[in-house]
Design a protein around this nucleic acid. Sequence first.
DNA 1: GTAAACGGAATGAATATTCATTCCTATCTT
DNA 2: AAGATAGGAATGAATATTCATTCCGTTTAC
Lengths: 188, 188
Amino acid sequence: MTTNKREDILLAALNLFTERGFDATTVPMIADTAKVGAGTIYRYFDNKEVLLNSLFQECVVQFFQTITQGFPESGTVRQQFHHIFFQTIHFAKGNREAFSFIDSHLNPRLLDDRSLKSFEVGMDFIRHFLVQGQQQGIISSLPPNALISIFYGALVKLFETIRAEVLEETDELLAGVEECCWNAIRVH
Amino acid sequence: MTTNKREDILLAALNLFTERGFDATTVPMIADTAKVGAGTIYRYFDNKEVLLNSLFQECVVQFFQTITQGFPESGTVRQQFHHIFFQTIHFAKGNREAFSFIDSHLNPRLLDDRSLKSFEVGMDFIRHFLVQGQQQGIISSLPPNALISIFYGALVKLFETIRAEVLEETDELLAGVEECCWNAIRVH
DNA sequence: GTAAACGGAATGAATATTCATTCCTATCTT
DNA sequence: AAGATAGGAATGAATATTCATTCCGTTTAC
């Protein structure tokens, strides 16, 4: 058997942290879910916080990689927005929990500087896109952080709602939501 | 002295729960912040969970009261949206933490049925407004829960960002965000 | 003076972490 | 080739710590 226990532990932690939050998740819970002994977790991670930070960074890197790869540098602002939106959905589909996990655990109390930085670097990419769009007079001139709050906040809550199964994820729905978010941030 | 210890405890809990979350907040922490003995908390609340639920319900009632009071039943859909949006801001200004607290603790693992129900009842009011707007052909025909995810999610994230002090709350900003959210959910 | 309210140390349950031991697997020996 | 041996990985019971809750002596209000 060639199972990777480190991966098993990270996956179990991702599911539990997303569902219950870091503080309500116990190490034995993670061990049970990953089907390893509690002590095994400490062979791979110094402590529970290090586990959280490792997981967070892996998720953030994967997420922003998905968004930045193949970004249409020379496309229209609308095309660029579509890329970001579509790739975010793509990521969320393949990594059901990761997107919610990133947002719900983005907290200076829990994360170390390296984790916080890795998220900020990714966000800089989005901010840069928004500023470019503003310079072309296509995107509303609110502060970039406000625009991010609007469409990123909307997406986070949308996937939360889908995960809670009070809303069904269909292609039509997601296309509709993209249109809504674009209308929210573009100049009219 | 005629200070109300129950209020002191609820206020301390609100601040700590909002900042750290329910699970990372200890009862002695709440006692210290409220400047009461740990035992005193148990004179007013059976246990920590009852305290959470009492707080949650008080916040939810106050929030939806703010929104429903003076709602322009016979106004235009745009005016009604303005009312909801403006009153939400009004509430958030007077109760800095309550809005974030409600959203971050809306969780079946923590709340009892009564608390969950009180939130759902409030949300029904918003859903009813959206359906009315859809029937008049003014609001986008996405599922109401999707529309709520969009503009409620945006607002939650916006106030979270303001609370984190990476965005300054000004009247212009809030007016701009209202316009964005309206553009997000209206038919074009 | 007395009954209720209060405070905070004491208690016991739950939790993160450690560590002595077992289990595998790969290498070495004959 | 078969058995012996070493070394790293894994385990889960034991330990140390943290936390919700209780209890009781003290203070306050009337």
